[in-house]
Every structure is written in structure tokens, then in C-alpha cells.
Design a protein around this nucleic acid. Structure first.
Lengths: 230, 230
DNA sequence: TCAAAAGTGTTCACCGTACACCCATGG
DNA sequence: CCATGGGTGTACGGTGAACACTTTTGA
């Protein structure tokens, strides 16, 4: 083991696999594609690709996400690298996994057709190729942790949302029921939302106030030592 | 971007770098080696090596750790992969980072001489090669989180330890002062230590009780829904 | 007898949680 | 006028944090 002769060392293919989370107002969902090539043709899979020589892992993940969704500046986080020797029967491949959060409404439905992509509830995952189910499990755990310490939930919601939507989102991320009154007073206590004068009237006669996430206020509070915690 | 021709994809060197934590009774420390080869000969560095074709990342980290410390079954956790294109001027290399916890007493001092290795307090890190300082920062953050949710602190202590040692350990991991009475009653509340009838008498005339971590009890409690939290 | 570290409880403020009723509106 | 979902406040228990004195013993 001597670092000074790089040449004698093995090189490997480095894959980047992405768990794309979305929220439809009821359930936390993941976007999967049906593989149209071997190995494992016809099975459900995460989207992925290979790291190119001149890009970072972050660049690769962005490129892959953009390719499938058409979106830029997607929130994402790298969470683990998977390296079982035979995880990909095609060739020795190590996979670096990212999860990504997108607003399901921004997403181009057309692209789903093109790639045979579909949204699946996290509670109804099909069997995926390779170790992708394990990746999904780990992504959910990481998302759960992150969403309770950083206000990333808003990445999954439209710009304007109701308190009910926000609560449902957290319920599906955390996989629990929350008490409406406690949830709202906790959120209000954080003081990082703006209640608009607009109401959403589709789901009820009375209508419910729309809110937006106040990014500036959040940054300012964070700089002053405020810690987001749900 | 088509996954079906693996052959046209770039391969990269995959390094594994290890942050080895130890605790000397006062400070949290990291084991570094002085590089004796180019590039960056003579500078301080984490220990690392390259992934071989027939091993997992976990295997590689174990192998590298064993090579430097002589120890097996070291507690470790993978925490991030670093991929800046020019992070290693020698060649395009992606590095997967692990942190490891060892009992500083088990460690063979002889090996330190052999590898020009030295323990450094985390508060007095020298400049390291490449992006290794960034790796250390991230490792400390992850360790901090992990140590507050899993009883991994004991990996850094001898089999038998005093409450004071345990408190000092947590103080150095969390980089805070803790109140002795609150700390002890919290630990006792967890009910996962065994107080031995032995005393340690080196640091005081009165002597202080030695304790061990009760692994079985902890597993049992964990299975029953108990959650470690400090 | 004294210095030095070990060991031990209580109080208070705050937070998380449980819990139920009135309001506004469209049909 | 009524059915439906929206919006709001309080009481209680538990946890985290602040805080000081007594005990032991070797020198």
C-alpha cells in the first residue's frame, strides 16, 4: 500500500444514483424509471448515470436530474456510497447516492412518458434492481433527519401552500400523525412563514390561508443563532 | 447518457481516507501521518489507500486501518465522498471518507514510529494535504451527531472507565462544558452502565468507581424501543 | 488537619403533548 | 340551515439546566 504509484491501482466505474422525492398533497413519492436495457431490463430502477472525468459528483447528480426532469437548481444531498462487489452484475461499479427534492408541479409530465417514469408512494415501493431498495430506505431516513433540522420541506411544496399541506407533508416524511393545533403553533413559533392575504378555496368552502417560506428571515435568524427544529 | 454501454464510461481511482479518533483522557485526538512520498511529501495527511477491485469500501477501510494500527474490528462509519476534479494533483481521484474510533491504549505505539504518525488534538489540527481538513471537519460533525444518538463513545474508552472520564470524553466530542451532576444523573438514567466494585485511585485519594458499558442490556433495551439520547 | 477530587438532590422554567369548541362559507 | 373543513388556547407532566455541600482519604 503505497500512495506514490497511482498507476498500479485499480480503477472503477463510479455511478451516481438519485432518489427523487416529490409530494402530491397526500403521500411522499419517489420517481422511478422502467429500465429499457440490460441487465435487468423491464425492472424498476432509480435514475442514475456515470461520473465523467471532468465533473464532480454534485455536477453529475445535477446533470442526471436535469436530464430526467428538465429542472435546474434542484435541492439535493449526497448521503452514501454503495460498493458491494457484485452489486451491479454488468460490471464492478461503486454507486454514490443522492436524494433530491422537487416540487411535483414543476416537473414536466411529458418527460415521464419519454423515460417510462412513474411516481410511487414510499409505502408502496416495487422491487428495484440491484441495491436500489436499500438506497431508498437510507434516503428516507436521511430525509427524515434533515427535514427535522433544516427547512427543506418547502422544496417539496409549491411556492404558496396551506398549513394543512405543510402538515400533511411532515406527516408523510416522518410517517406519523401530528396534532393540528400543536403543529401549527410550533410552525408559527418558528416565525419563518409569511401568511398571505390569499386563500386557497378548492378544498373547503371557507378557504384556507396560503403561506410562503420567508427565506430571508430564515437566513437572518439562522445567522443570529436560531436553530430550526421540528 | 445510456447505461447500457458500460465500456464507454470513464473510470476513476477510488481512494478511501480514514479519520482515526482517539481520546487520551483530556482531548479528542486524530491520528495523522507525515507523507513520505510525492505529491505533498512531508505534509500531514489522513491515512488512506485505494479501493481494490475485489473488496468493498468497508473492507478497504478495515484493511487500511489495520495496516496502520494493527487493530481489527474497529468501529467505523462512512460519511461522505469527495470529488473535486483537482483535489488530488497526482491524478483524478474520488475519495470516500470514513471515521474510525479506537481505544488509544490498544493502539501500538511502535506503529506510529514506523509511519511517522502522531496524535493531534482536534483543536490543534495542522494544515493537511488536499481536502483533508474539510474531511476532518465533517467527520467531527458526524461523530458529534452519532455520539449523541448511539453509545459509540465507549469505543474510545478503555473497557473500564470512571464517570469523570466519560464526561470529559463527551465534553471533548461536543466541545462544551457539562455539569457533573446533570451529566451523571442523565447517564444513570439511561441504565446501560455497570458500576464495578473496583476503584481507580490514580487521580484521587478517595478513588472513583470504575464502570463498564453493558452491551447486552443496551441491545435488549434497544429492542424494546429504548432510544439512546445524550 | 487540610487539600483535592468524588459523590449526591432539588428547584424552576420551558417544551411537548393531549385535548374540544367556535367560525366561515357554499350549497 | 347545515355540513364541512379552518382556525384557535389551555392545562399538565416531563425534561433540561442551574446550582452547593458533604465525604473520603493520603499526605
Amino acid at each position: 500500500m503505497n500512495l506514490n504509484n497511482y498507476n498500479s491501482e485499480d480503477k472503477v466505474l463510479l455511478a451516481v444514483d438519485c432518489i427523487i422525492f416529490g409530494f402530491d398533497g397526500e403521500d411522499l413519492k419517489i420517481l422511478l424509471i422502467k429500465r429499457n436495457f440490460e441487465p435487468e431490463r423491464g425492472k424498476w430502477s432509480l435514475i442514475g448515470g456515470f461520473l465523467k472525468r471532468e465533473e464532480t459528483l454534485h455536477d453529475a447528480a445535477s446533470r442526471i436530474l436535469n436530464y430526467l426532469t428538465g429542472l435546474d437548481h434542484i435541492y439535493m444531498e449526497q448521503f452514501y456510497s454503495f460498493s458491494e462487489v457484485n452489486r451491479d452484475p454488468g460490471e464492478r461499479t461503486v454507486s454514490v447516492s443522492y436524494y433530491a427534492l422537487i416540487n411535483i408541479e414543476d416537473h414536466n409530465e411529458q418527460l415521464n412518458k419519454e423515460f417510462s417514469a412513474e411516481w410511487f408512494s414510499v409505502s408502496e415501493m416495487p422491487n428495484l434492481i440491484f441495491d436500489h431498495n436499500q438506497m431508498v430506505d437510507m434516503a428516507i431516513k436521511r430525509l427524515r433527519y434533515r427535514a427535522s433540522t433544516k427547512p427543506i420541506g418547502f422544496e417539496l411544496l409549491p411556492e404558496k401552500f396551506t398549513m394543512k399541506q405543510l402538515q400533511k407533508l411532515y406527516e408523510s416524511i416522518l410517517n406519523t400523525k401530528l396534532d393540528k393545533r400543536n403543529f401549527i403553533s410550533k410552525i408559527n413559533g418558528l416565525d419563518i412563514l409569511i401568511r398571505l392575504d390569499e386563500k386557497e378555496t378548492e378544498s373547503s368552502k371557507r378557504g384556507s390561508y396560503l403561506h410562503t417560506f420567508d427565506k430571508e428571515k430564515y437566513s437572518k435568524k439562522t445567522n443570529e443563532g436560531f436553530v430550526f427544529k421540528i
